[in-house]
Design a binder for these strands. Structure first.
Lengths: 343, 343
DNA sequence: CGAGGAAATGTTAGCGCAATCAATTTGTAT
DNA sequence: ATACAAATTGATTGCGCTAACATTTCCTCG
């Protein structure tokens, strides 16, 4: 037995088994081990088994850092969302990962808060990992962010919004349309004096703007607006709901999330207001608890799972085909007004 | 000007600017650029500025894949949780990332579901990225998982549980103790006939076991148990609550999460049962909506943020000091019974 | 002004793996 | 058997960066 192939470990080595070690134990060339592990169909049955045995014997764990450098494929997808503390985004994360993991992709998570500045910073460090794909929440990015994404030429899906000029692919819905639809719906039901409780993020504001535009188009209705801080929570909803109810005579309160609506509902119940008789309440998101609250919350259903699913699928497709066309592909998953018992 | 330093790009190159390109433009050695970017204090003011200018000019984005390979530091932390669709884990993710990001660490997220098998698979691929640290939910792992973690010698924090022999560091609380404390508390308030609704994961089962043990120790009380599927949701709570109430005469229903408890509350309200007069309800987790439901939900507060915070801090400390001692460090963050209006 | 040390910069040699192409073995048809 | 293609394996090289050491520049002080 000669071990001329075993270079003595340099001081920089990590000490654990390398591909070379497996190769020596299996009695084959390192390249063959690489193939046996990554493209087993190119290797004969017998060598594959010998390699597998050698892997077990040496306790070898592949080093994908080195693999990524050598092959220019990181098998990493970056997923950037404002937060995971909101069930809708949690659902997206859950679904995207559910689709990508079985395909051998790992997810680098980035939380951008709700500010373009954070998005910019996070994107920079994310790009330094050379991800094979990126899922990015929202369509409004800083100039630098857009530039970086352009020149990086990474398959990209923007989600959770609509835009006329997406950077690459886009899966989302129109926040403006949501606002208008809610206004139309509530006006049709006879409500006229509205309270609006909105989170201070840009997409919630777009829904508010859509709502207001809807009122204006109809030439009816008046509104009072309150913004809440991040993150939205039931206490916020209860607080701002109380504030609105104290100062104004209202028919309905429209909230930028279900959790805020639940807070308003609790406030209404504690005041002995009948819902929707004396006060109608509308949420957003159709979180799991919306259907089961009492009375059941009327809301706008956004299919976060569908967004995550389609986004991940589009990304997989684009990553699979080496010819990376910038031809934008846009998908509007829409939304649905769910008319339960609070309106 | 000679450009002997510019090796023509091989066919394997990615095409974007490299450290070498920046070095050439700045008129310094590549190593100096590396230092200017990673350890600016080692470089003179003037060179730093020249390098910065060259970076902007070339549009250079560092390649941390190569950096990680060369330095054996990935600046990556793996975070493994069962799900992000549960607010408690979402909170942990949120906090851990909030602590690590400013320190220059990125997070590789892994969703293990609630099964040791998935954990095993995910951990394998995670280790292949050579993370600098790992945060892992739970203390019960498969033998293979334990072995791999042992031999990987990666700083590790187990969270969300207690154990007598943690693999490395541990930040959590005792599920058994939670169950016992809840039993004691409700018995003291005079409740005797209990319904239990539990998720089908091992830690929820431990809380149930603790509760039952608490009843046995006191020699009082009887219980009916129902398990729900994953993920827990308000409809599940309402369903199983209805099932329990239909079949049995109960004083109180104890749930393994707030969301289930909210479902039970909705069911009780729809039946016109007074809460807690005719039925007491107890949740778990003290989610944001627990405090603001009406009546306000009694629950067990788990400080997910504290767990995430301390876990991340411990990890940072361990990653900073090169001498990696296996001396276990365990932290019990405890819990608190929050006695609101449903008990 | 030159010695001596600190600060700044440069040179060399990998990190562990896979793309690429070359060499070998195997199978198939004549 | 022989020619030829297909399947399988191997040798070489470099991905882009940083550790480690070598060298140069700068500064201080007798």
């Amino acid at each position: 037995m000669d071990d001329s192939s075993t270079r003595p470990r340099s001081s920089r080595s990590t000490g654990s088994a390398r591909l070379t070690d497996v190769a020596r134990v299996a009695g084959v060339a390192p390249m063959t081990v690489s193939r046996a592990l990554n493209r087993p169909e190119l290797v004969s049955e017998t060598t594959r088994l010998r390699v597998q045995r050698a892997v077990l014997e040496t306790g070898y764990v592949p080093n994908r850092v080195a693999g990524a450098l050598a092959s220019s494929r990181s098998r990493l997808v970056a997923l950037l969302v404002p937060t995971v503390a909101h069930s809708l985004f949690a659902e997206v994360v859950q679904t995207v990962m559910g689709v990508l993991a079985p395909q051998g992709y790992q997810v680098l998570l980035g939380l951008t808060g709700y500010t373009p500045e954070q998005e910019e910073t996070i994107l920079e460090t994310v790009l330094s990992r050379r991800p094979d794909g990126i899922v990015l929440t929202g369509c409004r990015h800083s100039t630098l962010t857009r530039q970086r994404l352009q020149s990086a030429s990474v398959p990209l899906v923007e989600i959770w919004d609509m835009s006329d000029d997406p950077l690459d692919m886009l899966v989302g819905f129109s926040h403006d349309a949501v606002g208008r639809a809610v206004a139309e719906h509530l006006l049709a039901r006879g409500y006229r004096r509205f309270g609006l409780i909105s989170a201070d993020d840009s997409r919630a504001r777009f829904r508010v703007a859509g709502f207001v535009a809807g009122l204006e188009d109809a030439g009816e209705g008046e509104y009072q607006l309150r913004e809440v801080g991040t993150p939205s929570s039931m206490p916020w909803g209860r607080d701002k709901g109380a504030e609105l109810l104290d100062g104004h005579s209202l028919d309905a309160i429209v909230c930028s999330s279900d959790i805020l609506a639940l807070g308003v509902l609790a406030e209404a119940q504690s005041r002995g207001l009948s819902v929707p008789g004396q006060l109608a309440i509308m949420g957003f998101g159709d979180s799991s608890y919306a259907a089961a609250s009492f009375p059941a919350l009327s809301t706008v259903r956004i299919d976060g799972a569908a967004i995550g699913l389609r986004a991940a699928e589009h990304l997989l497709q684009r990553m699979a085909q080496p010819t990376f066309e910038r031809a934008a592909r846009t998908l509007d998953v829409g939304f649905e007004i769910v008319d339960r018992d609070t309106t």
